[in-house]
Amino acid sequence: MERECVRKLKDGKMAKVRLIIEDGVIKDVKITGDFFAHPEDGIEIIEKELIGKELYSARQAIESASGGIALVGLHVEDLIAMVQECLDGSMG
């Protein structure tokens, strides 16, 4: 199933997380919006890290993948909260 979470962030930026979940496993994820990430590939690294993960390990996957990435206008905690919101929706 597909879940989506859109947020207006603290500094006025927007972010959207879209997840495809099957049998409790993240099959696909796209993080989009008008934030900045340096290096830019960092967002793709986070996405790749999440794919194949079970729902309960999403937070850990984001935390470990976002280590060397400078996010601007979007915080790691926003990302975790948004993924969590998608996941909560999927189990409800």
Binding site: K16, K30, I31, T32, G33, D34, F35, A37, E40, I43
Partner: peptide
């Protein structure tokens, strides 16, 4: 559009 934006949005 920004690098991370969804074009259709």
């Amino acid at each position: 559009i920004g690098y991370f934006q969804e074009i259709r949005e």
